[in-house]
Design a protein around this nucleic acid. Structure first.
Lengths: 205, 205
DNA sequence: GGCAATTTTTACCATTTGGTAAAGACACGA
DNA sequence: TCGTGTCTTTACCAAATGGTAAAAATTGCC
């Protein structure tokens, strides 16, 4: 039984847990937590439902596992914001990385968005212990940059919110963006250029 | 039977349909379409489940009714964007109105966000017939303003996206914002000031 | 007050869904 | 090859859920 924090997982265990998590990411991000069913996940993973419950204790554990895994990837671009780099370039680089993530990992973006949208019922602790300290730290970094005169002064907290909002929008509201930008062959490039302009004008001292 | 487009609705009908829709907005916005149950809606409305199904054909009809109703309210600030007004003031006013809506109508914002997040399964037609023409029209207005030199030139489509994203973020990601801004007594004011600064710097010619 | 139409309740039902028990298939080291 | 532990399937189940039928209550008009 591959339950708690037992010994090292077998090759089959690793493969199947991977299959399940990938399938679950698909299904959860498409239908939300309640909208997703174990049967859908099972079919997407190519396994039987009881077999899935052999690897995970239940639907909720799959979801939480996914969320925990995601947090790392998700915060990584913010982690790499370098206090010793060129302030404006650091911010613009961060915007770019977040925008790339919205394009390359839309399922992850939507999974996260869905969880927050419903009040973060399965993630509130993680927000406080994982996100909050990092957020405060990077706000302080940005504040220092502004005090040095390397960036125009704005509230760093709302600055970060606006970066998150504008980049993730392209993943989370894709259904809408697709309707309104129907035949634009270079949506990503257009967004990248627009956001670079916006944050450059905002932050140039 | 208060079914199709019959005669004028009775007073009871008007009241109860109102109760149901308000309760449903609560429940749907909190748990999403699949996560919401008729029992929850019934309890929130103070009516029995079969009684609810006396006024609406089913869960889906309630949801769709809500979405359709919402569209009007939702697009209103964009409708009132006046081609003959002062360009920058018009945009800033639009931002402000959207931000106020995020504060005053968070349930509506989250209902909408949840629907789009899942691919707009019950709203795609409305996006094409209602939103798209308005979006194109207002993009054209903004483009004219830019060509006249009244605004700095940026892609109007991404400009509008960034307004939507940054304002709705405060409603849709409230669970996150609340954690990160825990003891800020003036979140709304701070956001308003930040966004005014951002869009002013972006658009000032 | 009487009566038809409207509204509400009671008692159900079929399906879906998360989950379990236990038997069976399989892998792999001795 | 044999046996032990790992993995998978089959056959279920109880609860939740969207929905219905029809009786009972209520409303509103004459």
């Amino acid at each position: 039984m591959p339950d708690g924090a037992d010994k090292k997982p077998s090759r089959i265990q690793q493969r199947n847990r991977g299959l399940i998590l990938d399938a679950a990411l698909d299904v959860f991000s498409k239908h939300g937590y309640r909208g997703a069913t174990l049967d859908q996940i099972a079919e997407a993973a190519g396994l039987s439902k009881p077999n899935i419950l052999y690897y995970f204790d239940g639907k909720e554990e799959i979801h939480v596992t996914l969320l925990n895994q995601l947090m790392e990837t998700w915060l990584d671009p913010l982690v790499t914001l370098d206090p010793d780099g060129d302030p404006l370039q650091e911010i613009l680089g961060y915007v770019q990385r977040k925008l790339d993530m919205a394009r390359d990992l839309p399922r992850e973006s939507r999974l996260f968005a869905g969880e927050i949208l419903q009040g973060a019922p399965r993630m509130a602790p993680h927000l406080v212990t994982g996100l909050q300290p990092l957020f405060d730290e990077k706000c302080a970094v940005i504040r220092v940059w502004m005090e040095k005169g390397a960036l125009a002064t704005v509230d760093p907290r709302h600055l970060i919110f606006s970066i998150w909002a504008t980049t993730q929008h392209y993943a989370d509201f894709d259904a809408q963006v697709q309707v309104l930008l129907r035949d634009d062959p270079d949506r990503h490039g257009g967004a990248a250029e627009y956001l670079a302009t916006m944050f450059t004008k905002l932050l140039s001292p």
